[in-house]
């Protein structure tokens, strides 16, 4: 089984990503790109191989979605690095990718290889992949927000950091909107209604509204500077990410969502 080889791909990718993170701090730009992209290619090769060997997109179980998340984080990281030259972003993304890879190595939830009829749809892959990319970007935004709230890190509440945050959230929210709407179109085809307030949908709505709240809050403070409100926006961003976790996997453990969600495919 392909998963038995995961550890080799994982170790190679993680070493390359950490190498990229270190060389970013040493201002070796070309090396940074080369190492990070090499890591991404190796990880992608693994995802591609299990996709082929399982004969279905690896997007159903929690273990499989974590795989995508661990892949998209360094991808988001290298895009942010390429565009805004933040050296630390690659260390953050490598750290998170390591955490998710370790969870997959130590607690794989990858038993089932079948795909039930409801998931056999052209919407399946884009819906989940877009969401995973959005989660990665918003995860990066949350880390920036936390860094800005920690006085020890000397990240003064500076406008350049805010503009990085705004950009990450805007891209993340645009992907989230696309993922959510694709989910709605798919739900209409599969379940007869585009929005049924299933627990996962309810939490998706909460998360979406809260990120929308952040964007509007920042619009206000850009016109009427207000440091207290800016700081509140950072806290809001952390709350947003907690709700996002709830939406992603928390509802699997939420008592009020037990047995009612049609979204708990990997949990049988």
């Amino acid at each position: 089984m392909m998963w038995d080889y995961f550890i080799y791909f994982a170790i190679a990718s993680l070493l390359l990503w950490w190498g990229g993170a270190v060389s970013a701090f040493r201002n070796r730009k070309t090396l940074t790109y080369a190492l990070t992209i090499a890591g991404l290619l190796i990880y992608a090769a693994f995802i591609g191989s299990i996709w082929i060997t399982m004969q279905r997109p690896p997007l159903r179980t929690m273990g499989e979605t974590r795989l995508w998340y661990a892949f998209f984080l360094p991808l988001a990281g290298i895009i942010v690095y390429g565009r805004w030259q933040y050296k630390w972003i690659l260390s953050f993304s490598a750290l998170l990718a390591t955490v998710f890879t370790l969870i997959n190595l130590l607690k794989p939830e990858i038993h089932s290889t079948t795909l039930m009829p409801a998931l056999q749809s052209g919407w399946f892959a884009p819906h989940v992949i877009v969401y995973m990319f959005c989660y990665a970007l918003l995860g990066a935004a949350t880390l920036v927000a936390i860094a800005m709230l920690l006085p020890r890190l000397h990240y003064t509440l500076h406008t350049t950091h805010y503009s990085l945050l705004d950009q990450l959230v805007a891209v993340g929210l645009s992907f989230m909107t696309l993922g959510m709407l694709m989910g709605a179109f798919w739900a209409k085809e599969a379940w007869g209604h585009y929005w049924a307030w299933d627990p996962k949908e309810t939490w998706a709505a909460i998360t979406w509204l809260l990120y929308l709240g952040y964007i509007h809050m920042r619009r206000v403070t850009q016109k009427h500077p207000n440091p207290t409100m800016d700081k509140a926006a950072l806290w809001l961003l952390i709350l947003c990410f907690c709700c996002l976790q709830m939406c992603w996997w928390g509802i699997n453990y939420l008592p009020s969502a037990q047995g009612v969600s049609v979204h708990t495919y990997g949990m049988k």
């Binding site: 307030w197 909460i206 509204l209 939420l254 009020s256 969502a257 009612v260």
Partner: peptide, 8 residues
């Protein structure tokens, strides 16, 4: 909506 999400 959060109240609905938590309580179901």
């Amino acid at each position: 909506t959060l109240v609905m999400g938590i309580t179901g």
